[in-house]
């Protein structure tokens, strides 16, 4: 791999970290990171004068994220092909787990609204899993690209 491409990918990793950090801050500011805050934001809370989100309202938030999540994951995950990791099965598990986590992270609010309030736990869990898996992916890429001698 050419040195300039290596730099370009390393910068992309830094930007991805920044994107995750800004997403985390935004989530904490707008919604909150507790089950109570999530329930209030999506299902409403009379005591806090918050109304429940509508399906259309959720769609407006979700729509750009469906494409953005998929694009970001595709770009990052396809670089795994160039890592030195020998355990290919673990990489496949990581890929499926990341896409599953982001699916539930995006769509759990709809399930919360239309199926059961218990999906509030799925939303929080999938968010944390998504962040964790993204950090693992970024670490794998960084370690293999920054220290590769090729």
């Amino acid at each position: 791999m050419h040195k300039a491409y290596k730099y370009s990918i390393l910068y992309f990793i830094v930007f991805s970290l920044l994107l995750l950090a800004s997403g985390f801050l935004l989530f904490e500011e707008k919604i909150g990171l507790s089950v109570h805050a999530l329930r209030a934001y999506y299902l409403g809370d009379e005591a806090l004068f918050m109304s429940a989100k509508s399906t259309q309202g959720l769609l407006k938030i979700v729509l750009p994220h469906i494409f953005a999540f998929a694009l970001l994951s595709m770009v990052l995950l396809h670089f795994l092909k160039f890592t030195n990791t020998k355990n290919k099965k673990a990489l496949i598990v990581l890929i499926y787990a990341l896409f599953s986590a982001q699916f539930f992270e995006i769509f759990a609010p709809f399930f919360m609204l239309h199926i059961s309030e218990l999906f509030v736990y799925v939303k929080l869990f999938s968010l944390l899993v998504y962040f964790g898996l993204m950090l693992i992916t970024l670490h794998l890429l960084f370690a293999s690209i920054a220290f590769s001698k090729k």
Partner: peptide, 21 residues
């Protein structure tokens, strides 16, 4: 502000990565 910043990061990273390649 955080919403604006978040979107700026996303658009610039995708644009710059493609352009630099």
């Amino acid at each position: 502000f955080l919403e604006f910043w978040h979107m700026e990061i996303f658009f610039s990273m995708m644009l710059l990565f493609t352009l630099s390649a």
